[in-house]
Structures are given as structure tokens and as C-alpha cells.
Design a protein around this nucleic acid. Structure first.
Length: 342
DNA sequence: AGTACCTGAGGTGATCGACA
DNA sequence: TGTCGATCACCTCAGGTACT
């Protein structure tokens, strides 16, 4: 950088190598045989050099500060991620939009843990509630699936939030909470929890590694002359406690992997430690089961764990509605398994 | 009793890839 | 090219234990 760009308050210090040369020269002269007056003169010279070095040091520090300030004032502003400020854009009639947003996001988190990984339809917040809806018909049509999930969501929303259901503030905050919890859960399953759930983490390192090791375990059916390859929905060994080559409803959802996944989700990465050896230790930290006061397993959470177990062993790289590698529709799988379980 | 430390959760911003 | 969603690393906070 040219010196003309430097602030005038920061002159360059004298050369440090010259001070070092002078010091070495004086040290050479300071022998015990020198008369006292010569030693006194050499000591004065030493003091003088020390003062110069001290001044140079201070000058360098000032110069560094000047350069830091200068670079800070000319640096490009860091790229800011654009974040939708729902609370700020909420309708004026909404009291405490900030608090409502936070509470709704937390409900979205809770909903994801206990009920479903995905919404059955993005419009679920804006449809009208069908007063004649019969929960026993929940899986008979897409319309009824939406009504069923809407009822579940309403069960989680506090009364003051229920009234605002159709607003962007509520739908956005709720789905944001779900997305956050889904991301956190999937990352922790393939990260800190993995070694507690499976015996050998090596095949899990890559998408192809997972396909080669576990495709059959999660229901892969190779293609033939007349058929494209696909992933079966029920011929999935991972779903059962003891796979006998065909589906067995008595052992459905009872695979140890599913139970360990469930334990990891609600009790953190160490939650599955010792689950089947009688050495299960309740984690001391704040965990999902404590936060949401989870005392028993509900159907939604069991199906969630099953879906998560399949995804964990799949070649898919992200936990999204339709697997990016397998094409498995995890959202539909959830609905179908939930219907089987209830 | 005070504190140091640990574990796990949630929030935030950066980055990357998909997509219009 | 800009926007959006998913993911990751990093940070702070809460709530617990262990030690002094």
C-alpha cells in the first residue's frame, strides 16, 4: 500500500534492524575491564535505545489502530440475509405481534415433534373449518386430510392465536417453527446421534454409501424389463422388529432403530444410549421431552420416528417432502402410516 | 452456598443450490 | 440475476451435576 494513503498521525517508526545493530555493538563493548565512566556512557546509550524502541513500539500500535479503523470505514458492508419481519408487518389490530410470533413458532416446533414432519397442504391455515367433518373420514380424501390436520394444529394453538389462524403472521411463524425443528432434528440424527443409533457409522458418510448398504433395508425394489425401480411402502425390513421376508403387522414399527431414533429425538443425542441394555440414563440437559412434557408415545411421534429412520438410511441428502435421491414421498408416507396406526 | 462445567436446545447469519 | 429454502457453524441460554 502506498504511504500516501496512510493517515498523517502515524509516521513510520525508525528501522528496527538499526536499533538491534546498535544494541549488539554496545553489548560487545561492555566488558568487565572497561573503566566506570565508559560503562556509565554505554548505559546511557542503552537507555536511549530502549526509549527509542519503546517509542517505535507505541508508534506501531497507533499505526495498526489507524489501519484497522481505516479498513473498517472502507470495508464493504457484510451481506445481510433478508429476513421477513412478520411481527413488524403484522396488522395493527394484532396485540403484541412479537410475542405471538414467538409462541406460535414454539407451537410449530412442538407440533412437528408430536404430530407430523410436514403439512399435508400449504393452504391448511387458510381453508375454512368444516363443522361437519368426521375425524373417522380423515384419510378418505385430500380435503379431509387437510381438515384432519387443521384440527390437530388448532389443538396446539392458544385461544388468542386461534383467532389469527389465517394470517401470514401465524401460518408463517408456525411453519417456520416446523422447518427449524425439522432441520435441527435431521442434522442431529445424521450428526451427534448417529453413533448412538447404529453400530457402524461408516456407510452413512455418503449418499452412495447409504444406497449400497441400506437400499434393500428401506424397501428398494430394483427395476426389471417391464418396471422402473421403486421403493416399496410395506416391504421394508426396517419397519419391522423381525423381518421374515414379508410384511408382518404384529411387528410393524417395532424395529430397534425406530425406537432409538425416537429416543434420540425426544432426549437428545445420548437419549438412545443403553436403551436395550437396561443402562438408559436420563440426560441432565434440557431436552425435548422435558420442554414439551412428553410422558407417552403418540401415533404421530411414532410415525415420525419411522419416517426419520427410513430417511436416515436413505441416499437422500436432505429431509424434504420428496427425497432428492430416492423420490420417496415422505409426506405421503407419513399420512399412510398414520392411517395404518390409528 | 457459590461456582465451574457440561449437555442440549434455539436463534442467527453465511453459504450453496434450485428455480423462475 | 435475484430469491428462496435447506443446511451448517457458531453463539447464547437453561438447567442440571460436581466440586470447593
Amino acid at each position: 500500500m502506498p504511504s500516501s494513503n496512510l493517515p498523517p498521525s502515524s509516521p513510520l517508526p525508525s528501522s528496527p534492524s538499526r536499533a538491534t545493530d546498535d544494541l549488539m555493538d554496545i553489548v560487545q563493548q561492555m566488558t568487565p575491564s572497561k573503566p566506570p565512566d565508559v560503562l556509565r556512557r554505554l548505559r546511557r546509550n542503552l537507555q536511549s535505545i530502549a526509549n527509542d524502541v519503546q517509542e517505535d513500539n507505541s508508534s506501531l500500535k497507533r499505526r495498526i489502530t489507524d489501519l484497522e479503523n481505516q479498513s473498517a470505514s472502507t470495508a464493504r458492508p457484510r451481506k445481510q440475509r433478508r429476513r421477513g419481519n412478520r411481527a413488524a408487518h403484522a396488522d395493527d389490530s394484532v396485540p403484541n405481534p412479537q410475542t405471538i410470533e414467538e409462541r406460535t413458532r414454539e407451537k410449530g416446533r412442538h407440533f412437528l415433534v408430536q404430530e407430523a414432519l410436514f403439512l399435508v397442504d400449504p393452504d391448511v391455515f387458510t381453508v375454512d373449518i368444516d363443522e361437519d367433518f368426521d375425524p373417522r373420514d380423515e384419510f378418505s380424501s385430500d380435503k379431509n386430510k387437510i381438515q384432519g390436520q387443521l384440527r390437530q394444529i388448532m389443538h396446539y394453538l392458544p385461544d388468542d392465536v386461534k383467532r389469527l389462524r389465517t394470517t401470514e403472521l401465524i401460518s408463517g411463524a408456525f411453519t417456520d417453527g416446523m422447518a427449524s425443528q425439522r432441520s435441527s432434528t435431521s442434522n442431529r440424527l445424521r450428526g451427534a446421534s448417529l453413533s448412538k443409533i447404529v453400530d457402524n457409522v461408516k456407510p452413512f458418510e455418503t449418499s452412495s454409501g447409504r444406497f449400497n448398504a441400506f437400499a434393500e433395508l428401506i424397501g428398494y425394489q430394483p427395476g426389471t424389463d417391464t418396471r422402473e425401480p421403486y421403493y416399496s411402502k410395506l416391504d421394508v425390513p426396517l419397519l419391522y422388529d423381525a423381518w421374515q421376508g414379508k410384511k408382518d403387522l404384529n411387528s410393524l414399527f417395532r424395529n430397534p432403530i425406530i425406537l432409538k431414533t425416537y429416543a434420540s429425538v425426544i432426549r437428545g443425542p445420548n437419549g438412545a444410549d443403553g436403551l436395550f441394555s437396561g443402562k438408559l440414563k436420563r440426560p441432565v440437559a434440557k431436552t425435548v421431552d422435558k420442554m414439551y412434557k412428553i410422558h407417552c408415545s403418540v401415533p404421530g411421534a411414532i410415525v415420525n420416528s419411522t419416517i426419520l429412520s427410513i430417511w436416515l438410511h436413505s441416499a437422500d441428502t436432505q429431509l424434504v417432502e420428496i427425497g432428492d435421491e430416492t423420490g420417496i414421498n415422505y409426506r405421503e408416507r407419513h399420512t399412510e402410516m398414520y392411517a395404518d396406526l390409528t
